[in-house]
């Protein structure tokens, strides 16, 4: 295998990990975003939290593995991106901590103030995580001002552009919709009826953002369509994406929430794909000097390490997929509160 092929394979594997994370932890974060609004009583809020209770930390491992794989296979990209987004990522870590501990702590006391406090942190952590992921994606698509070594030279405010903020809000809307559909699947009765409204509401917000972001990026962000002229087959992805988005309201009207969930998962996968296609072959585009850009080729680890990594993935991924399926199968169906619940 030539070194270039290895780099491309690893770029694809990283994409798979990122898509896995975005779909799976995406609904956890979405659940957190709609949590305080869609669920009114304490029991409802417990139902909402327990719908992701057994799953969220397994879902977060996709992010940890993505980070580890980026570190191992493209160390220069990992170093440059993570140090460039220093304060945003510190905030992201805080948001993820808020989300984790509020799930864990909320049920440990009965007082109303205690529970409302953790409800708020759960909402804040989930929303902030989604927003920051989106801002990072938007900023990466536009590229950063970096040194020859790859160290970021701008300030925090330079990366908070209208576009990156827009992508941030877009991500919040997307995950809120994804989470609402997931919750609709997992709940029953009055709560489920209320979530029906939330599915529609979040869908329209998402649709509005989708149109704006699509227009903005195709007109003003050069990277987004750069490979489409050379590889017209790529047009298939946005077309499938539009079909998936169109299928969401159809599935909701037909009372087939599972199809709506699959469709929203597909649109997430398509968006992550379009993001990577816009970057390729860069991992971090340089705005000041294209030669400084960090690409999947110049940031790569040695071919031996990439091959060892492939062996690890070949052994590990089937295991990971088998127990992910096993766990989701075990906790299928409507969420119920038992003595082990949060």
């Amino acid at each position: 295998m030539s070194p270039e092929i290895l780099c491309i394979i690893w770029f694809i594997i990283l994409n798979v990990l990122l898509i896995g994370y975005a779909i799976l932890d995406g609904f956890d974060l979405g659940v957190g975003i709609v949590h305080p609004f869609a669920a009114k009583t304490d029991t409802e809020r417990r139902l909402v939290m327990n719908s992701i209770g057994p799953l969220w930390d397994g879902n977060e491992v996709w992010l940890v593995t993505f980070g580890g794989a980026l570190f191992a296979m493209f160390p220069n990209a990992y170093a440059s991106i993570f140090s460039a987004f220093y304060l945003p990522f510190v905030l992201l870590l805080f948001a993820l901590i808020f989300r984790a501990v509020s799930l864990e702590f909320r049920s440990k006391r009965t007082s109303g103030a205690w529970r409302s406090f953790w409800d708020f942190l759960f909402f804040l952590g989930s929303t902030l995580s989604a927003l920051l992921f989106g801002v990072a994606v938007g900023a990466l698509m536009q590229g950063l001002n970096i040194s020859e070594l790859g160290d970021y030279q701008g300030t925090l405010l330079d990366m908070v552009t209208p576009f990156s903020l827009l992508v941030g809000l877009f991500t919040v809307a997307l995950l809120a919709m994804h989470g609402s559909i997931y919750l609709y699947l997992k709940t029953e009765g009055e709560l489920q009826e209320r979530l029906h409204g939330w599915m529609w509401g979040t869908f329209y917000v998402y649709l509005a953002f989708f149109v704006v972001v699509t227009l903005y990026s195709t007109i003003l962000v050069d990277a987004s369509l750069k490979h489409f002229t050379d590889y017209p087959i790529l047009w298939l992805v946005p077309m499938l994406n539009v079909l998936a988005i169109a299928n969401i309201p159809r599935a909701i009207s037909q009372h087939r929430p599972f199809y709506a969930f699959i469709s929203s998962s597909c649109t997430i996968a398509a968006l992550v794909f379009l993001f990577s296609a816009a970057l390729y072959p860069n991992l971090l585009p340089a705005t000041n000097n294209p030669d400084y850009a960090i690409t999947i080729f110049n940031a790569a680890s040695s071919p031996l390490t990439q091959k060892i990594g492939l062996i690890i993935v070949a052994i590990g991924m089937p295991l990971v997929l088998s127990y992910t399926i096993l766990i989701y199968w075990t906790f299928r169906g409507k969420v119920e509160l038992g003595e082990d619940s949060y």
């Binding site: 593995t65 570190f71 296979m73 990992y78 390490t305």
Partner: peptide
Amino acid sequence: GDVFGSALAAEGIFAFFLESG
């Protein structure tokens, strides 16, 4: 990264998924 990162990635795939799942 070439050396240290590999161990971290292996940790994610072999250990964390198993444990949290």
